[in-house]
Nucleic acid binder design. Structure first.
Lengths: 204, 204
DNA sequence: ATCGCTTTGATACGTCGGTATCAAAGATTT
DNA sequence: AAATCTTTGATACCGACGTATCAAAGCGAT
């Protein structure tokens, strides 16, 4: 009966189960047992692949970050102008909003991790801040390109603007997650902000 | 030995103890026992004043919101121009940043509650979103006043700008909390943004 | 077929945490 | 002085959870 799956398959299977639990019932509902049940495997097998809960959680965080990276990349490449700064930036920021179940889960779980990291040194040591940090640099680069291309006013400071964009989309995302704001409301605000930045689309 | 305190004093004493625990070790470290220990009273007494942990947590949330309201009010009144929109808005947004231990605790605990609220209906029913919602209206009002006074360009939409301001300061606050950004960096970004809004100080 | 990796099951241990209970005693009020 | 409110102490119960252990069996590859 027990079909053998290779390690990678099992790993992702378990991690996806974890994310489903965390996404629907919160990170506090993630236990070795609940994950096993969600994945339809025995508790013992979860122990087999991830010896401790801490390792399991760290792996899940990694998995989550990877999925989000893929999502964003896909979103950018799916636009009609994947080399136009305005298009890229708007796609990135919009993708970061919790619109569908997947991105809701991402936001929820990631935020929960972040909260834990503030008081848990082991988690804080994790490459947690690297993703948003990289994103900020990426945005700053795009803004610099835009300035060179003459589609962003020269008096704008790319570094600061990038920080603002990132904080803005994170804040809006949280608002959407809490039901305090609709996703449409948030996307509108992002477009509005980019418009007033003076960040135009590159003419074809 | 046991001195009698009135209910209010005890309540706040216990709630402050809770916030100290939550602020230093995280909300997950808040247990009936840890709070009792932090407050230097018996577990039994915590049970006496707040029958269940849920009630205790809800009371703490209320207490937290109240303290933050006071903090912001004080901050605004302490400025040199407590009736100038630009001054008020900058004070409010800056106060919302986790600069000292108190505001760090606020951010941390509030965010932790927010994360819980997403998957806990009992918490979500709480007047959670009312504070940020009221703040957003307040900011929008200030912006409208500014427009009437001619210190904010008329093509700006106060509602959207208010939403952006709130999301921005929340996002920056999170960044500061996670150590990804300094408080100075964040305050700079806020001033920068207000400047580019075209929101000027009212001339004396 | 033997060896090694994978999977399950049952189960158990220790800890922690929310809640409950009983008894007793100090303090305040009337 | 009596009645009521406040406070402590000592426990106790029960459930949940992380972790560990032992035994057994399925499956793949050499």
């Amino acid at each position: 009966m027990p079909k053998l799956a290779d390690r990678d398959t099992r790993h992702t299977q378990i991690l996806e189960a974890l994310l489903r639990v965390a996404g629907s019932q919160g990170l506090h509902a993630v236990t070795m047992r609940s994950v096993a049940a969600e994945a339809n495997i025995s508790l013992r097998l979860v122990q087999y692949y991830f010896e401790t809960k801490e390792k399991l959680l760290l792996a899940a965080l990694d998995h989550l970050a990877g999925r989000q990276r893929e999502r964003i990349q896909t979103r950018v490449l799916d636009t009609d102008a994947p080399d136009d700064p305005r298009t890229i930036i708007e796609a990135v920021l919009t993708e970061a909003l919790p619109t569908d179940q997947d991105s809701r889960t991402f936001h929820l779980v990631y935020t929960a991790y972040a909260v834990h990291a503030v008081t848990d040194p082991a988690l804080a040591a994790q490459p947690f801040l690297r993703a948003p940090d990289a994103m900020e640099h990426f945005l700053a680069d795009q803004l610099r390109h835009a300035q060179r291309d003459g589609i962003l006013p020269p008096h704008r400071d790319p570094r600061t603007e990038a920080a603002i964009l990132l904080a803005l989309s994170a804040g809006l995302g949280t608002g959407v997650l809490l039901g305090q704001r609709t996703a449409e409301n948030a996307t509108t605000a992002i477009s509005y902000h980019l418009d007033h930045l003076g960040l135009a689309r590159r003419p074809a």
